[in-house]
Design a protein around this nucleic acid. Structure first.
Lengths: 134, 134
DNA sequence: TCCATGGTTCGACAATAGTTGAACCATGGA
DNA sequence: TCCATGGTTCAACTATTGTCGAACCATGGA
């Protein structure tokens, strides 16, 4: 588990609420495992333009949470955190502590989504046209 | 959000034989045109298992509304009508008067959806597994 | 014309979701 | 150790959705 800094591919953390010696910053938040990803929750999470905007920013790879913002909006942090929570609990993104510095790393769970609902995430993300307006 | 109270009442107390164009049953409900179909609304409409169940029944072709019921549920008709409304207003289905008999005909707007959001509707419908449960 | 059928809409309420200030928490650096 | 940073959670509020009885409407048939 050394080296390989930001490629959390394949394995699901499936973190229990176990007693952990916190080496990394911030709490470890619960994520559904691949099989637990629910279609209704995913569709609902993606039904919001703001949440989709964040997801779109993760298409090219993981991002620090601080850098992931819908269109430079000065969104209150509580609001942003809530949006991320909806996406995370739906299984759309991973929200893990950044092992390097302060803050967190967001990742689109593309593999898991693709395995569970083939074609869905691509269809949604490529469907997003700016003219749609909502 | 209900500004669609477009009444066909007070039709014509006018004298003389008014030629009636459409001898179909029930009101003509508003549908978004293809370009007006909004991704957020579609995803939201499909984020409910009950609504998805109805959509799935329309995969093989149009159905009389009376025949389109999620799993034999004795759903109150107001509730069912509301579910259909959400799907219709999102542009997922068409809800037209039945020209033959009483009642209405429901159609999945597959072509429109496919044109607007390629692959999306198929991904959603084929993703639906019975294990999901919610 | 009256009635049953199939359906929409209204209205009221319950339940869920969104927003956001404030409190709190952990880390890294001075 | 104290502080700034980046972030989650709490709590309270608002807003949107869901549910469903009742009212209403149009049609077809007796």
């Amino acid at each position: 588990m050394d080296s390989e800094t930001h490629s959390t591919r394949g394995a699901d953390p499936a973190p229990g609420p176990t007693v952990r010696d916190h080496a990394a910053s911030g709490p470890e938040l619960p994520h559904p495992d691949r099989a637990g990803i629910d279609l209704s929750q995913v569709l609902f999470a993606l039904s919001d333009p703001g949440r989709r905007a964040m997801v779109r920013q993760l298409q090219d790879g993981p991002l620090e949470a601080a850098a992931c913002t819908p269109a430079g909006t000065d969104l209150p942090k509580a609001t942003k955190s809530h949006m991320l929570k909806v996406l995370r609990e739906a299984g759309v993104i991973r929200n893990l502590p950044n092992p390097q510095r302060r803050g967190r790393i967001l990742t689109l769970r593309r593999d898991d989504l693709e395995a569970r609902f083939p074609g869905l995430i691509d269809a949604v993300l490529s469907a997003d046209s700016p003219s749609a307006g909502g």
